[in-house]
Design a protein around this nucleic acid. Structure first.
Lengths: 210, 210, 210, 210
DNA sequence: AATGAATGAGACTTCATTCAT
DNA sequence: TATGAATGAAGTCTCATTCAT
């Protein structure tokens, strides 16, 4: 993002290829998982030959790392760009926005699995991206407490709880037919990410207890 | 459960072998994931030959299904056996108990990934086990509302939110060093599952807002 | 056949088992071929365990040899028992009788294939059985020539030609739908082995030429 | 045949590889049969790696189908190209030419065996090739009858009888030591395909009977 | 003598990676 | 730089044979 755009035409074309390949890889990885995705399939999706893949990435694993880095950038970008002023709106936004797309949700789970086996994915996605989201959330909560908008809960714990909930929802969304079909809105409207964000924010803010 | 224990010695030995193999498979799958786990490795962990594996399970995938069924039984067993009388203790228990073990947490993620690709895993783990947990939680909340212990939130939504949080925590636990190190207890004690359960239950019940 | 029947009850039972196993092996071999037939399947067809198979035959290949011996006995038995007095009837009988059953036709082809790879099958089936059939036919033809019933053709050649034709028919019968459907009897009757035998004998005896 | 030869060098090389692999497969299949032939051995015979086999044929069975198609083309080509003017020469030629080579004779048997288990082999070899040979022979015989060169036998039956004889000889050739050694030419010359063709044609045309 | 679970060699097939064109 | 055929290691699964019961 902040990188200066490549100067020469050759460099610009190379950068475009990289993007094109990573996008194809993201699609295939999200659908098949890492192991079941084949370089052949990724090449086909990127509309290049398998050989070309290896001109841009040394190994298949590097493709995964590249995709993880891309998504780490996106995911951390989102929270820092949030313009929500109160915690109420913020929680609603986080839930509504994060993992709105199937591909993102699948990749999220994929990265977590692969983080166990790949140091780079661990570093880029877990250590830098997820840890940063938690830390940012923590700061927002601390501010809300300082401003008297929130009771003095442990902000680290609260941030982790909210993050866990969002992660959990992203997992559950994947199985909407089995896990969500039982849920109905009282007004009969279909369940949307926005409505859900608002409802869950309400639960979090006001609690369950009478 | 209701099956009478196998009568003959041969049958008892066969049952023991099945258990022994499934246990080995669970270990290897949880460490390597499905694709990276090899039948050779599973056989070695079970201390049998690769051929023997196939006397008990027709395919490698059936091994995964077998493991999933086992864990589905365990996971649903836990909630129905819960003796918690108030919602307070129940939430704390759910969080504290579920996924207390590393292997279970890893398998949880694995099953969800593989559920996309295997009908049986989907059925046994997602449709029957997870869906049942949510449904049971929903009933407990409804009861709490009826008893006036909880404000009249949508029980379906609340059950899903609590479940999502637990799932999310189970994911986060896996990366304790990156995601949990920042969290400290005020009293300086180490973070335990029980303490965490209590704290999160408090957040859920009383909300964040002042 | 000429063996004295086993004296003791134990020996009689053992002999019955051998027969039972060989019969099952013949069935399975004829359906699947040698390699694709499994000892498990043969055991099941014989209604014994796999282990029992090995109490009677040292290897799977010995099962094939046993089957080949059985059929060699049968096939040579047939011609020597022939009561046909003239060459006319003999040719008709040979064609009509040999390979009347699907299982025999299949085993015939199987033995020929396997004779290349197994010395015993070669010896029992090709060297002893087939060679004897040819030799017997040759003698019959020589007699017919001597009796003035046949023109002085080379009896060795004639015997081999007749044998080749019978073998060829047995192969073609296997693909009756593709290779026989085009053939119709003038009287509209269905094609039977007897009719075919008569017709072919006529061709052989009187020739094609006007 | 009507295909234009591949234009590019790459395509020409690919076609050569296919041919090279099929030729190796034909050799190995003819020696070992289908099941006993290993892809490792075929690859070695073709002087390529096992992986390369699968760049040209999806499965081992497809290799067999490819070989069968090749031979089906050859076998049907032969009869239609026959220039024999009288039935006498034709029969002699058919017998002399067909299955002149050991590999062809072995593959003939192999295809018939495998035709039971593989639809494509059945179609290409039995339905199209063998059935066509019979049908072509039938037409030649019908013509000979119409021209008054042959007595009015059933042409379908005669064609099948000749075909059966040729097939049978091809089978018997395989066991020349056991089945042919007894045959001697009166003039002391060695037995050749041409001589044999002539002799058998004589038998067929003029019959056995005095 | 009968059983059938255990074995392990070896088969087919896939696929990440290389390299000549 | 792009291509895609070639490679071969490694994976899953089968099955003849053995052997403790």
């Amino acid at each position: 993002m902040l990188d200066t755009p490549p100067a020469t035409r050759r460099e610009r074309r190379a950068e475009a290829r990289r993007t094109q390949i990573l996008s194809a890889a993201a699609t295939v990885f999200s659908r098949k998982g890492y192991e079941r995705a084949t370089t052949r399939e990724i090449a086909a999706a990127a509309d290049v030959s398998e050989g070309t893949l290896y001109n841009y990435f040394a190994t298949k694993r590097d493709l995964l790392v590249g995709v993880a880095q891309n998504y780490a950038d996106e995911v951390t970008g989102a929270i820092t760009e949030s313009t929500a002023e109160d915690i109420d709106t913020l929680v609603a936004q986080l839930i509504a926005n994060r993992f709105r797309h199937r591909q993102e949700r699948r990749l999220f789970m994929l990265f977590l699995q692969e983080a166990h086996l790949n140091r780079d994915v661990y570093q880029f996605y877990v250590q830098e991206a997820l840890a940063r989201i938690i830390s940012d959330t923590e700061k927002l909560i601390q501010t809300a407490i300082d401003n008297g908008k929130m009771r003095p809960v442990d902000p680290g714990l609260a941030a982790r709880t909210i993050s866990a909930t969002i992660m959990g929802f992203s997992v559950m969304f994947e199985f909407s037919d089995a896990l969500w079909d039982g849920l109905k809105r009282k007004d009969g409207q279909p369940i949307t990410a926005d409505w859900l964000g608002g409802q869950v924010a309400d639960l979090f803010l006001h609690g369950l207890e009478k």
